[in-house]
Design a protein around this nucleic acid. Structure first.
Lengths: 147, 147
DNA sequence: GTGGTTGCAAACCCTTTGCATAGAC
DNA sequence: GTCTATGCAAAGGGTTTGCAACCAC
């Protein structure tokens, strides 16, 4: 089993291929590379641009359009979650299990915290004919002591 | 007290001017018109585009660029709050007091619910050197009974 | 009069799309 | 061989910016 990417976790090719196939996605060269970067390490909140740069940092090249398309396919397949940050660029979150986010004061960066960090004593009455799909909690932070 | 805009609430010119001045903004024609639309009625979540259309619906005209610039000035002044919807367009919320949002299943539209609709039994430990600025709760809804 | 504000158009950024080529099965 | 995925460049949508004319004080 050879692999051309340096990464903290081993490139388990067959595992990634399996995961893609199970999601109904052909395991093309590009999708395997992107899946490896996304799921092979601990990376969390990536923009398409950042992911594209990581590809190039590994001396590979995939067009930015394909990065975008692939990210959207992964979202549709439930492998990724889309989150809207502060600016108008979309972040893609490799965690699909329930969790929430801190927004850091300095740079607007996102930090995860687990779902069990929050407990609701009460939730509001819902509009008729609806139920909760999911609840999003985002805690905006500020530096201690500042107004 | 005359006013050129049809709206459900009276155009209290001096009140709007006062509010703008207090925020350090010159009460220009354009800012007063926009403030009147934003704060004179019960409007809630507007995009720049929607606000621009409302201006034209009142037989007035303000350039879209000025609408954008004014909205950003109002946000900086604390008169509005910026919220990121589902797409990549920014919504501006005329409520600055604490409240949260439902995201409707049909169209991704936003509906307010008051802050007292939620109670937290528990909040997570914060990163060192930070405190909570504000907590955002967004409840994504789905049609009853659908997966 | 002075300095902030507006309007227009062009620029900008992020993202998607059309179409020919390349690749998976 | 067939059908899907990719790459490129161009288009697209939303938002910001540069600069001359304009307006509030």
């Amino acid at each position: 089993m050879t692999h051309g990417l340096m990464c903290s976790q081993p490139f388990v090719y067959s595992e990634l291929v399996q995961r893609l196939k199970k999601s109904g996605l052909r395991p093309t060269r590009q999708r395997v590379i992107l899946a490896n970067i996304l799921f092979g390490r601990g990376a969390r909140h990536l923009t398409a641009e950042q992911l594209h740069r990581e590809v190039r940092d590994n001396a590979l090249r995939i067009s930015l359009a394909t990065v975008y398309n692939t990210l959207n396919q992964f979202v549709d397949a439930g492998l990724l979650r889309e989150i809207q940050g502060q600016g108008q660029q979309t972040y893609f979150d490799t965690r699909t299990e329930d969790h929430f986010h801190f927004v850091l004061p300095q740079n607007g960066g996102l930090v995860d915290f687990p779902a069990h960090g929050v407990d609701f004593a009460k939730l509001p009455a819902l509009p008729p004919g609806t139920e909760i799909d999911r609840v999003e909690v985002t805690i905006h932070l500020k530096p201690l002591g500042k107004a």
